[in-house]
Design a protein around this nucleic acid. Structure first.
Length: 420
DNA sequence: TCTGGGGTCCTAGGGCGA
DNA sequence: TCTGTCGCCCTAGGACCC
């Protein structure tokens, strides 16, 4: 039996933990640069504010209904997530952290336990331990656990936030209730096509022939059908090193000069390198891209990218910065207003058994240097040591006008309670 | 004026060597 | 030496997830 534990409106709930005065009030959390809505409390959803909506389109609604708006505070959310996960981990060691706000737990062999009760306990413990409300769905497969979780979340009064799909009758009933567009693994494109063909529910979907599904939705669709039929095709996945590491950003304004873009791209490469060293890997290829603002039809558009095969595997910030600079120089075209750029590291290999290229290889001195930089940045806060090509004044700061304090990760922002 | 960021997996199709 | 076929590998693009 699998359980899927999912935090309710996670980012909004994190903000509420430290602002209990906002309970019952509408909250939205915005993406980087305060661009789009990326999380909403139930009250904000009820106001019809859609996911992914540009914030400036809904400014009026925010003001009219006194919606509390937050800039994304990923430091806080990451820390709250690890607290939730560490509590869940006490229930079973067989756990897969699927995303920042959800985890699959394997309860095979728990036949003598009352899982419904265990789910209620888990929910209570996470809520009292972290302040984050969660929903729990139990089912025999991962895809069905997703469905069960959906039910728990949708009907909290009836389920108490925990739903246990333990019979064929419940499975069929759930699949007949669930819209095909809400099935995990069926996205926008496929659901549009399916609905057009009269396939409206998850139950309709599993009536389709294997041949049709394989042809139109590949083996992924077929696996999903099996899972919804109760046949286990997906197991818990081990924590794996990333196969690609990206840092990409939209800018606060248009960039026109190569010098300005250089600084940004080098900083992205340095951030990627830090992530790379964290997982003890090196990369052998790098993609750099730049593009203009697609939403500005009045301006000339330009989108360029390049993949560099590196002459040797490396995780050195200064070497990756050098390659990023070279790559940018090769794609930069003068005369455009650039709005976004990014660096993506690819072809990632473990750091230890680096094969030395006969003619060129990573500077061995960099290994010790990077270790020292990582240590200093870990002890004294991020961005304390920068490359000369980076901007120490950080003039490119993201727009984050509604940022809450980092209550749990920065001593100088910790909450102070004054007694009268 | 203002529209995010970071990932994974699968398939089709072309290049290329046996 | 030339040509056809097969299978492997790589890449781009599309679909999905949060």
């Amino acid at each position: 039996m699998f359980a899927l534990v999912d935090c309710n409106n996670f980012y909004a709930s994190c903000e509420r933990v430290f602002r209990p005065d906002l309970n019952g009030k509408p909250i939205v959390v915005l993406s980087n640069n305060d661009g789009c809505v990326i999380a909403r409390s139930n009250e904000a959803k009820a106001l019809g504010i859609p996911m992914g909506a540009p914030a400036f389109h809904h400014q009026e609604v925010f003001e009219k209904h006194n919606v509390k708006v937050f800039s994304a505070n990923f430091g806080l959310y990451g820390d709250m997530s690890s607290r939730v996960m560490s509590i869940l981990f006490t229930y079973t060691p067989k756990m897969e952290i699927y995303s920042i706000d959800e985890a699959f737990l394997n309860f095979d062999g728990f036949d003598l336990y009352n899982l419904q009760e265990l789910g209620t306990q888990m929910r209570h413990k996470v809520l009292t331990g972290t302040g984050i409300p969660v929903s729990v769905g139990f089912a025999p497969t991962k895809a069905l656990a997703k469905v069960a979780n959906h039910i728990a979340k949708k009907f909290p009064e009836r389920t108490g936030g925990v739903y246990f799909m333990d019979s064929e009758e419940k499975r069929i009933k759930a699949l007949k209730w669930l819209g095909v567009e809400d099935v995990w693994g069926i996205g926008k494109q496929h659901s549009k096509k399916l609905i057009y063909l009269g396939v409206k529910t998850a139950y309709d979907f599993i009536q389709l022939s294997d041949g049709w599904i394989k042809k139109n939705m590949s083996v992924v669709g077929l696996r999903l059908k099996r899972e919804l039929q109760g046949e286990r095709t997906l197991e818990l996945e081990d924590l794996k090193n990333k196969q690609s590491i990206a840092t990409t950003r939209s800018f606060d304004r248009m960039y026109t000069s190569l010098i300005e873009l250089n600084e940004r791209v080098i900083t992205f490469a340095v951030t990627c390198a830090e992530k790379l060293r964290q997982q003890k890997s090196c990369c052998q290829a790098m993609m750099v891209f730049i593009h203009t603002n697609f939403h500005r039809e009045d301006l000339a558009q330009c989108s360029k990218n390049i993949v560099l095969k590196l002459p040797y595997p490396t995780s050195s910030s200064s070497e990756l910065a050098k390659f990023a600079k070279e790559a940018l120089a090769r794609i930069f075209v003068n005369g455009y207003c650039y709005k976004k750029a990014g660096v993506i590291l690819m072809d990632i290999v473990p750091a230890l058994p680096n094969q030395l290229n006969l003619f060129e290889h990573s500077n061995p001195k960099h290994k010790a240097l990077m270790k020292a930089i990582d240590r200093i940045n870990a002890d004294f806060g991020p961005h304390k040591i920068l490359l000369a090509a980076q901007d120490p004044a950080r003039r490119w700061k993201m727009k984050q006008e509604k940022l809450s304090p980092h209550y749990t990760t920065r001593l100088d922002e910790i909450m102070i309670i004054k007694a009268d």
